[in-house]
Protein backbone atom coordinates (compact mmCIF):
# COMPACT_ATOMS: atom_id res chain seq x y z
CA UNK A 1 0.00 0.00 0.00
CA UNK A 2 2.74 2.38 0.98
CA UNK A 3 4.68 1.59 -2.18
CA UNK A 4 1.70 2.39 -4.37
CA UNK A 5 1.20 5.65 -2.52
CA UNK A 6 4.85 6.59 -2.99
CA UNK A 7 4.64 5.67 -6.65
CA UNK A 8 1.78 8.09 -7.28
CA UNK A 9 3.43 10.70 -5.09
CA UNK A 10 6.58 10.60 -7.22
CA UNK A 11 4.51 10.95 -10.39
CA UNK A 12 2.74 13.95 -8.90
CA UNK A 13 5.99 15.66 -7.93
CA UNK A 14 7.53 14.91 -11.31
CA UNK A 15 4.62 16.52 -13.10
CA UNK A 16 4.74 19.47 -10.72
CA UNK A 17 8.45 20.08 -11.38
CA UNK A 18 7.85 19.94 -15.13
CA UNK A 19 4.98 22.39 -14.75
CA UNK A 20 7.21 24.81 -12.77
CA UNK A 21 9.67 24.92 -15.64
CA UNK A 22 6.99 25.24 -18.28
CA UNK A 23 5.51 28.16 -16.36
CA UNK A 24 8.72 30.18 -16.85
CA UNK A 25 8.88 29.54 -20.57
CA UNK A 26 5.15 30.06 -20.90
CA UNK A 27 5.39 33.41 -19.13
CA UNK A 28 7.90 34.63 -21.71
CA UNK A 29 5.71 33.31 -24.50
CA UNK A 30 2.95 35.68 -23.45
CA UNK A 31 5.32 38.60 -22.71
CA UNK A 32 7.15 39.11 -26.00
CA UNK A 33 8.32 42.61 -24.98
CA UNK A 34 10.64 40.98 -22.43
CA UNK A 35 12.64 39.27 -25.17
CA UNK A 36 15.94 41.00 -25.77
CA UNK A 37 17.15 39.54 -29.07
CA UNK A 38 19.06 41.98 -31.28
CA UNK A 39 18.20 41.71 -34.96
CA UNK A 40 21.79 42.26 -35.96
CA UNK A 41 22.09 42.77 -39.71
CA UNK A 42 18.82 44.71 -39.79
CA UNK A 43 19.76 47.10 -36.99
CA UNK A 44 23.18 47.97 -38.41
CA UNK A 45 22.31 51.62 -38.98
CA UNK A 46 21.21 52.16 -35.40
CA UNK A 47 23.86 49.94 -33.86
CA UNK A 48 26.08 51.90 -31.52
CA UNK A 49 29.21 50.36 -30.07
CA UNK A 50 30.81 51.42 -26.81
CA UNK A 51 33.46 54.08 -27.03
CA UNK A 52 36.28 51.79 -25.92
CA UNK A 53 35.38 48.85 -28.16
CA UNK A 54 38.53 47.51 -29.77
CA UNK A 55 37.50 47.11 -33.39
CA UNK A 56 40.61 47.81 -35.42
CA UNK A 57 43.66 50.00 -35.16
CA UNK A 58 43.44 53.35 -36.91
CA UNK A 59 45.60 56.44 -37.11
CA UNK A 60 43.49 59.58 -36.75
CA UNK A 61 44.23 62.38 -39.22
CA UNK A 62 43.02 65.94 -38.82
CA UNK A 63 41.47 67.96 -41.64
CA UNK A 64 44.90 69.16 -42.83
CA UNK A 65 45.89 65.50 -43.42
CA UNK A 66 48.29 65.49 -40.48
CA UNK A 67 48.92 62.62 -38.07
CA UNK A 68 50.87 62.49 -34.80
CA UNK A 69 53.13 59.50 -35.46
CA UNK A 70 56.82 60.26 -35.03
CA UNK A 71 57.87 56.81 -36.31
CA UNK A 72 59.60 55.95 -33.03
CA UNK A 73 58.64 52.28 -33.39
CA UNK A 74 57.65 51.68 -29.76
CA UNK A 75 54.36 50.09 -30.85
CA UNK A 76 56.28 47.75 -33.12
CA UNK A 77 58.53 46.62 -30.26
CA UNK A 78 55.62 46.15 -27.87
CA UNK A 79 53.41 44.19 -30.23
CA UNK A 80 53.55 40.52 -29.23
CA UNK A 81 52.62 39.15 -32.67
CA UNK A 82 54.55 41.31 -35.13
CA UNK A 83 51.35 42.92 -36.32
CA UNK A 84 52.78 46.39 -36.80
CA UNK A 85 55.60 47.44 -39.09
CA UNK A 86 56.73 51.07 -39.04
CA UNK A 87 58.70 52.04 -42.12
CA UNK A 88 60.52 55.32 -41.65
CA UNK A 89 62.66 57.54 -43.85
CA UNK A 90 65.34 59.98 -42.78
CA UNK A 91 64.58 63.50 -43.86
CA UNK A 92 66.57 66.69 -43.51
CA UNK A 93 64.80 69.54 -41.81
CA UNK A 94 65.19 73.21 -42.71
CA UNK A 95 67.95 73.80 -40.17
CA UNK A 96 70.06 70.92 -41.51
CA UNK A 97 69.23 68.28 -38.86
CA UNK A 98 68.51 64.71 -39.82
CA UNK A 99 65.22 63.36 -38.54
CA UNK A 100 63.14 60.21 -38.78
CA UNK A 101 59.77 60.58 -40.43
CA UNK A 102 56.97 58.14 -41.06
CA UNK A 103 56.85 56.64 -44.51
CA UNK A 104 54.45 53.73 -44.12
CA UNK A 105 52.61 52.39 -41.09
CA UNK A 106 51.65 48.82 -41.96
CA UNK A 107 49.10 47.06 -39.78
CA UNK A 108 48.20 43.40 -40.31
CA UNK A 109 44.69 42.98 -38.97
CA UNK A 110 44.81 39.21 -39.45
CA UNK A 111 47.57 38.86 -36.88
CA UNK A 112 46.22 41.32 -34.32
CA UNK A 113 44.99 39.93 -31.01
CA UNK A 114 43.65 43.26 -29.71
CA UNK A 115 45.71 43.29 -26.54
CA UNK A 116 45.92 47.09 -26.67
CA UNK A 117 49.63 47.39 -25.83
CA UNK A 118 50.41 49.52 -28.88
CA UNK A 119 47.82 52.14 -27.99
CA UNK A 120 48.79 52.10 -24.34
CA UNK A 121 52.53 52.54 -24.92
CA UNK A 122 52.34 55.08 -27.75
CA UNK A 123 54.06 58.23 -26.39
CA UNK A 124 52.32 60.63 -28.79
CA UNK A 125 48.80 59.12 -28.89
CA UNK A 126 49.05 58.64 -32.61
CA UNK A 127 47.02 55.44 -32.84
CA UNK A 128 43.63 54.51 -31.40
CA UNK A 129 41.16 51.67 -31.70
CA UNK A 130 38.09 52.40 -33.78
CA UNK A 131 34.71 50.76 -33.32
CA UNK A 132 34.48 49.18 -36.76
CA UNK A 133 34.14 45.46 -36.18
CA UNK A 134 33.01 44.02 -39.52
CA UNK A 135 36.34 42.77 -40.84
CA UNK A 136 35.28 40.11 -43.32
CA UNK A 137 37.18 40.28 -46.65
CA UNK A 138 37.64 37.85 -49.51
CA UNK A 139 41.40 37.34 -49.31
CA UNK A 140 43.86 37.83 -46.55
CA UNK A 141 46.03 40.35 -48.40
CA UNK A 142 43.25 42.84 -47.87
CA UNK A 143 43.76 42.58 -44.12
CA UNK A 144 47.20 44.20 -44.40
CA UNK A 145 46.47 47.89 -44.15
CA UNK A 146 48.48 51.07 -44.41
CA UNK A 147 47.25 53.33 -41.68
CA UNK A 148 48.78 56.67 -42.67
CA UNK A 149 47.01 58.37 -45.54
CA UNK A 150 48.59 59.31 -48.84
CA UNK A 151 50.69 62.47 -48.56
CA UNK A 152 50.07 62.95 -44.86
CA UNK A 153 52.58 64.76 -42.71
CA UNK A 154 53.49 65.02 -39.07
CA UNK A 155 51.38 67.43 -37.11
CA UNK A 156 53.27 70.61 -36.16
CA UNK A 157 54.31 70.62 -32.52
CA UNK A 158 53.83 66.88 -32.08
CA UNK A 159 57.53 66.00 -32.23
Amino acid sequence: MREIFNYFKSIFFALKSLWTGMKVTGAYFFKPWKIVTQQYPENRKKLKMYERTKGELVMPHNDKNEHQCTACGICQINCPNGTIEVKSVTVETADGKKKKALNKYIYNLGMCTFCGLCVKTCPSDAIVFSNKFEHAVFNKEKLVKTLNKEGSTLKKGAE
Binding site: Y50, R52, T53, K54, T113, F114, C115, G116, F129
Partner: peptide, 15 residues
Protein backbone atom coordinates in the same frame (compact mmCIF):
# COMPACT_ATOMS: atom_id res chain seq x y z
CA UNK B 1 29.73 41.13 -21.36
CA UNK B 2 28.29 44.59 -22.02
CA UNK B 3 29.77 45.82 -18.74
CA UNK B 4 33.13 44.34 -19.72
CA UNK B 5 32.97 45.84 -23.18
CA UNK B 6 32.24 49.30 -21.89
CA UNK B 7 35.23 49.33 -19.53
CA UNK B 8 37.82 47.04 -21.10
CA UNK B 9 36.99 47.32 -24.78
CA UNK B 10 36.52 43.60 -25.38
CA UNK B 11 33.87 41.11 -24.47
CA UNK B 12 35.55 37.74 -24.05
CA UNK B 13 39.32 38.17 -24.02
CA UNK B 14 39.82 41.40 -22.19
CA UNK B 15 43.58 41.73 -21.41
Amino acid sequence: LDIFEETTGSRLIQS
